[in-house]
Computed example of a mutant assay.
Amino acid sequence: MENMPLITHVILTGGVGSRLWPLSRKSQPKQYLNLFEGKSLFEMTVERNRTIADKIMVVGNIDNCHLSRQVMEKSSTPYLDIIESTPRNTAAAIAFAAFASQPDDILIVTPSDHIIDGIEPYETAIHEAVEKASKGFIVTFGIIPTKPETGYGYIERKGDDVISFREKPNKVTATDFIAKGNFLWNSGMFCFKASVLLEELKKFYPEVYEKSKIAWDSNINGNLDLDLSLEIPSISIDYAVMERSKKIKVVSSTFTWSDLGSFESVYDYLVSKGHPVDLNGNMVIGTENYTAFVGLKNTIFVYTDTANLILQKERSQDVKNIYSELERQHSDLLN
């Protein structure tokens, strides 16, 4: 009897979550905030795939690996740690995970900062993806959209074939996508055989392949050298492989999914879980202090020890402008 391929859950933990400042900081990015029923998004990501995967790899950076380690130790889950000395985007992060695997291992790659509800459709989608991956396809997960969301990329498809990947649209384009009916939200989750992903990366972006391999081959206990890492072009897996390869399939699903990329999506999620809002839809996050809103509607008040944020819910994409401004000032408030 031939060996069944091992299924590895690869968790990408590199993001900073700048649109969720001041909750999300460099020292405590959004995937580690215990905001969600006392758990962090990272912890929920580990739990969600525990029954599906044989092993876990965590690809993170030198600044946040101790936070991942705390969660993994708390649940006493064995895992392989890949620690990047500097962020090099998702193409390199995923290449490292593939180099660390056996050629026939099937990798399920997920971000660590997304929320997913509806475990049955999720598991069905994963099993379908594993089946396609074992036949040599690179599988991407598309979510059947519930509204013309402008904060997500889209996948245009025919059946399980991908016609095109689309950047985040404006409202008019997004509404058009929904009307056409064959567009899915791009969840940023993937499934593939390690060897297939590496072959495609080598074919379409040999420089990322070669430089990632050099960095990986000289890793020490999963820690990657800074100088070798800086040689790797910083590009996304979408651009390096997904938009070029002829081996892409999409699995479409209806599980509830959000990248919680903005306070608007956090607000919607917290409301669905019973977090209090006043009669005018105003919400407080981060403090039990009595807080009154006068003459305001759909306002979110975010409290932290060193910074507060007050925003109109529908302007939540603009928070990244504050983050950029504080970055220009080299402010300690980002740490």
Rank of each mutant, 00 (worst) to 15 (best):
residue 238 D to Q: 10
residue 305 D to S: 14
residue 229 S to H: 07
residue 208 V to A: 03
residue 35 L to E: 12
residue 11 I to Q: 08
residue 16 V to R: 13
residue 122 Y to M: 11
residue 27 S to A: 12
residue 160 D to Y: 06
residue 199 E to A: 09
residue 289 N to W: 15
residue 228 L to A: 04
residue 213 K to I: 06
residue 325 E to W: 03
residue 178 I to V: 15
residue 178 I to W: 13
residue 162 V to S: 00
residue 283 M to Y: 06
residue 262 S to M: 07
residue 122 Y to E: 05
residue 295 G to R: 00
residue 142 G to D: 11
residue 108 I to V: 01
residue 215 A to Q: 08
residue 212 S to H: 06
residue 16 V to M: 13
residue 136 G to C: 10
residue 265 S to L: 13
residue 301 F to I: 01
residue 168 K to V: 01
residue 89 N to R: 00
residue 97 A to H: 04
residue 295 G to D: 03
residue 145 P to H: 01
residue 244 R to I: 14
residue 260 L to Y: 09
residue 195 S to N: 14
residue 250 V to H: 00
residue 279 L to E: 14
residue 131 E to S: 03
residue 107 L to P: 03
residue 308 N to G: 15
residue 167 E to F: 15
residue 290 Y to E: 14
residue 66 H to E: 10
residue 293 F to T: 02
residue 68 S to Y: 12
residue 41 L to K: 08
residue 34 N to Q: 13
residue 218 S to T: 15
residue 167 E to H: 14
residue 58 V to L: 09
residue 127 H to T: 03
residue 94 I to S: 04
residue 75 S to Q: 10
residue 41 L to S: 12
residue 188 G to T: 04
residue 28 Q to F: 12
residue 335 N to D: 08
residue 317 Q to P: 11
residue 49 N to I: 06
residue 163 I to N: 02
residue 162 V to M: 10
residue 150 T to Y: 09
residue 138 I to L: 10
residue 304 T to E: 07
residue 225 D to P: 13
residue 43 E to F: 08
residue 302 V to K: 10
residue 206 P to T: 01
residue 57 M to F: 05
residue 334 L to I: 04
residue 113 D to C: 08
residue 92 A to S: 05
residue 283 M to K: 02
